[in-house]
């Protein structure tokens, strides 16, 4: 018994040590909001050397698709370089804004079969994945009591505009559970007005927790440790709870090797961002100028 106790104490000390070393994941995906808060709190508590502020590294959340796939079998520096050049060329043609999973977007594409040859769709972004020119995102909405999901490719030249109607994050990385939630949680009007955030504010996190419909579900949501579901316990049987406990993998967050394999090392990231930083910054400033002009000219048109 005492041995077991000692072992658990050892584990705790190891965990504490890891937390103190401030080992952070440089994930290619946007970091979880909570992790950030924890990191900030820690810094306050410990009060050690401040983290070197690298503005380039902030870009890994805003432009995650510029980081290549970390699988070493698929990597090639020349291909990645050519891909980035093509991405920047496309970004010069169309404004691809900053958005996250949970943001509400309106996408207009040119469609040869649609009336007027364009098609506009509004929805909540439930996933964002892929690297380089393969980057894609999925929008979900409920139209006429029917759930609709459309997957768009970020660098598809048929996309005319991508407009962020509400910039925010949710509690989870992927919102697939909206498919099993009540339809009110994924219903958004097509004539929604864009909400403008004041400059410099951090991206807000929407703490809304959705209600699931009764079973059957598309996936076993209870096993995925989701924070954005409120009423999952009432649908679970004793059997499900037992299985959930058995399937838990609490050691995975301490698996540094696994984390390393999933991410791009910081030295390589610095190289990549150093290559594209200036162009992205230029695009950002030019975009700001355009929006300012629009704000100035809007009242005139109303008066007229």
């Amino acid at each position: 018994m005492s041995l077991v106790y000692r072992k658990s104490v050892d584990l705790l000390t190891v965990a504490k040590w890891i937390m103190r070393r401030e080992i952070r994941s440089l994930s290619s995906l946007p970091e979880k909001a909570e992790e950030k808060d924890v990191a900030v709190e820690e810094k306050r508590h410990i009060g050690r050397r401040p983290r070197p502020q690298n503005p380039m590294l902030e870009y890994r959340n805003v432009y995650p698709e510029f980081l290549p796939d970390p699988n070493p079998n698929w990597r090639n520096s020349l291909r990645e370089k050519l891909e980035r050049v093509d991405m920047l060329k496309r970004r010069n043609q169309i404004n691809i804004p900053e958005f996250y999973v949970g943001s509400i977007l309106a996408v207009t594409i040119s469609d040869p079969h649609a009336q007027g040859k364009t098609n506009r769709f509004v929805g909540i972004c439930i996933e964002r994945k892929g690297c380089g020119l393969r980057a894609e995102f999925t929008l979900r909405n409920v139209v006429d009591h029917q759930g609709v999901e459309v997957r768009y490719e970020l660098y598809d030249p048929t996309i005319q505009t991508i407009q962020v109607l509400r910039l925010e994050k949710r509690l989870d990385d992927k919102l697939y559970y909206l498919r099993d939630a009540l339809p009110q949680y994924s219903t958004f009007p097509f004539d929604m007005d864009p909400e403008i955030l004041p400059e410099g504010t951090p991206v807000p996190i929407n703490p809304v927790q959705v209600e699931l419909k009764p079973r059957p579900w598309l996936e076993r949501w209870e096993r995925q440790e989701l924070k954005g579901i409120s009423n999952i316990e009432e649908y679970l049987k004793e059997k499900d709870r037992v299985r959930r406990e058995l399937r838990k993998t609490p050691w995975e967050k301490y698996d540094l090797m696994k984390q390393y394999r999933k991410t791009i090392p910081i030295e390589e990231q610095n190289e990549i961002w150093g290559e594209v930083y200036n162009q992205l910054q230029q695009m950002k400033t030019s975009k700001k100028k355009i929006t300012r002009k629009r704000v100035m000219s809007a009242p005139k048109s109303q008066l007229g």
Binding site: D86, M87, K89, Q93, S110, G116, K117, Y155, T158, Q160
Partner: peptide, 13 residues
């Protein structure tokens, strides 16, 4: 092939 520096593809009615 569409070149990435060309403007967005639109279809004529």
């Amino acid at each position: 092939i569409h070149q990435f520096e060309q403007p967005t593809i639109t279809f004529e009615e």
